[in-house]
Amino acid sequence: MFFYQRKILTVLTEEQFREGYRKAQLIDVREPNEFEGGHILGARNIPLSQLKMRLTEIRPDKPVYLYCQNTTRSGRAAQLLHRKGYKELYQLQGGFKKWTGKIKKK
């Protein structure tokens, strides 16, 4: 599983993630209550549990930047997206709990 994820997914440091996420689709795959507790500025909340039903909200022709609390759910989300034909998949190293940039709380 780990090696498969490494093949389909590019893990980015926080700095690399910051450089590219404004030009991409930033998706937070955590549940809504976690998202409301704080999320990266500009992120859309599409929980992993709803991803299959909400695929139309994600454009396959643009890079997709994923993150969750750690990296488990964003890795699973990447596998699902890859199976649906998405190519440019990126993940935040260490997940949201390691993020030091601006966040928004509801």
Rank of each mutant, 00 (worst) to 15 (best):
F2Y: 14
F3I: 11
Q5E: 12
Q5R: 14
K7E: 10
K7S: 13
K7L: 14
K7Y: 11
L9I: 06
T10V: 11
T10L: 15
T10Q: 15
V11L: 15
V11I: 13
V11C: 14
L12P: 02
T13S: 15
T13W: 01
E15M: 11
R18A: 12
R18K: 15
G20I: 08
Y21Q: 01
R22N: 15
R22V: 13
Q25N: 09
L26Q: 03
I27Y: 04
I27G: 05
D28K: 05
V29D: 03
V29Q: 04
V29T: 01
R30D: 02
R30M: 07
E31T: 04
E31C: 05
P32L: 09
P32K: 08
N33L: 00
N33S: 08
E34S: 01
E34R: 07
E34V: 02
F35C: 02
F35G: 00
E36T: 03
E36D: 12
E36P: 02
G37K: 01
G38F: 03
G38K: 07
H39P: 03
L41V: 14
L41I: 13
G42P: 01
A43G: 03
A43W: 05
R44L: 10
R44M: 09
N45I: 03
N45P: 00
N45R: 00
I46L: 05
I46P: 02
I46C: 05
I46M: 03
I46E: 01
P47C: 07
S49T: 12
S49E: 12
K52F: 06
K52C: 09
R54A: 11
L55H: 00
T56Q: 14
E57C: 09
E57G: 06
D61Q: 12
D61P: 03
D61C: 10
K62G: 00
P63W: 11
V64A: 03
V64L: 02
Y65A: 07
L66P: 04
C68G: 04
N70Q: 14
T71K: 13
T72S: 15
R73N: 01
R73Q: 08
R73I: 03
G75H: 06
G75L: 06
R76V: 10
R76M: 12
A77G: 06
A78N: 04
H82G: 03
H82F: 14
H82D: 08
R83T: 07
G85S: 05
G85V: 08
G85M: 11
K87C: 08
K87H: 13
L89T: 00
Y90Q: 08
Y90L: 10
Y90K: 10
Y90R: 09
Y90I: 06
Q91Y: 05
Q91A: 10
Q91C: 10
Q91S: 12
Q91T: 04
L92T: 06
L92K: 04
Q93L: 13
Q93W: 12
Q93E: 15
G94S: 10
G95D: 06
G95A: 09
G95M: 08
F96I: 05
F96W: 05
F96R: 04
K98W: 09
K98M: 11
W99R: 07
W99I: 09
T100F: 08
G101W: 09
G101C: 10
K102L: 12
K102D: 08
I103C: 02
K104E: 04
K104I: 07
K106M: 07
